[in-house]
């Protein structure tokens, strides 16, 4: 039945029949296919997340879904688990440092691209978003063989992780800052300059406050990307400086338990709050398109 309907849709397309509207079964089949694919797409995206949160609520060691009861036991276990330290003392400080440095570098680059007459502007923009175009596995490998050079042994692993995360987050802070600076009226800046402000003063007193939501969004995006990154961290992590996603990755190679689910759920909740915040600040559309 369904197959026949699909065939009739296809034949309508292939023969290019010029009727002004399609026959009813074709339309019904088209709709069914469309909504079927929609449902499949949304569940592919959302299902794993719902399952992780569901598993984390299990009161026992079992990873049943739906959970056999509702308990926060594994969230308490998290506080004394081997995941606690990577979460609060590795991933969190690295993400904050990354977001701070990346935001500053992103604003500087975006300011020049938007406000100054840059020759080869497209190429310059490409340069600053190149970490988005070069595959992360290649970036991670290149950084690993460069930063693990003997002469750099004195540099702590966490600093190397920040260096790597700043590289992969610059495109995001750069693009959000570009949009933010473009939205600031140049006449306001010129007004300040005419009243005697230096370029830097005009930037600090006029442009920066007006682009605040863009800057905060870029910061949050960089924070999230650093916190959840598993690829660059996989190559650069070592010993006590292992980030949370890598810790989970290594754990999952041998076993899995509701404890992992609880840890993952805490990460999901953190990201959820920050994503909602970004949505409030610049809207999902802007955030989604810039990524």
């Amino acid at each position: 039945m369904g197959l026949m309907a699909i065939m009739s849709v296809l034949s309508a397309v292939l023969t290019g029949r010029n009727s002004r509207s399609l026959s009813t079964p074709a339309v019904v089949a088209g709709r069914a296919l469309y909504y079927g694919l929609l449902g499949l797409a949304v569940s592919t995206l959302v299902l794993p997340i719902i399952i992780v949160i569901g598993i984390s609520l299990n009161p026992t060691q079992s990873q049943a879904f739906p959970p056999s009861g509702i308990s926060l036991r594994w969230y308490q276990e998290f506080l004394v688990s081997p995941f606690f330290e990577p979460f609060f003392f590795v991933s969190l400080p690295i993400a904050i440092a990354t977001a701070t440095i990346s935001t500053i570098l992103g604003i500087l680059a975006a300011y020049v691209v938007v406000r100054r007459d840059v020759p080869f502007e497209n190429e310059v923009v490409m340069y600053f978003i190149s970490p988005l175009i070069i595959p992360p596995a290649i970036i991670a490998l290149a950084l690993m063989i460069t930063l693990n050079f003997n002469l750099l042994d004195f540099v702590p692993t966490s600093a190397k992780l920040v260096v790597g995360h700043v590289v992969i987050t610059i495109p995001y802070t750069f693009l959000t800052a570009m949009t933010a600076i473009e939205s600031v009226d140049t006449e306001l800046v010129e007004g300040a300059r005419n009243l005697g402000a230096t370029k830097f003063q005009a930037f600090r007193k006029i442009t920066l406050p007006l682009m605040k939501s863009g800057v905060v969004s870029g910061f949050l995006l960089a924070f999230i990307l650093s916190f959840t990154d598993s690829l660059v961290a996989l190559f650069l992590s070592s010993g006590s400086s292992t980030t949370l996603p890598v810790e989970i990755f290594l754990f999952l190679q041998y076993e899995s338990s509701p404890l992992v689910a609880a840890t993952a759920s805490i990460q999901i909740l953190l990201v959820l709050v920050l994503v909602l915040l970004i949505g409030r600040l610049i809207g999902f559309k802007a955030a989604a398109v810039s990524s």
Partner: peptide, 11 residues
């Protein structure tokens, strides 16, 4: 997209 690969793969 933002939640991270490892978490979703765990699901």
């Amino acid at each position: 997209l933002m939640v991270g690969t490892v978490v979703r793969i765990y699901g």
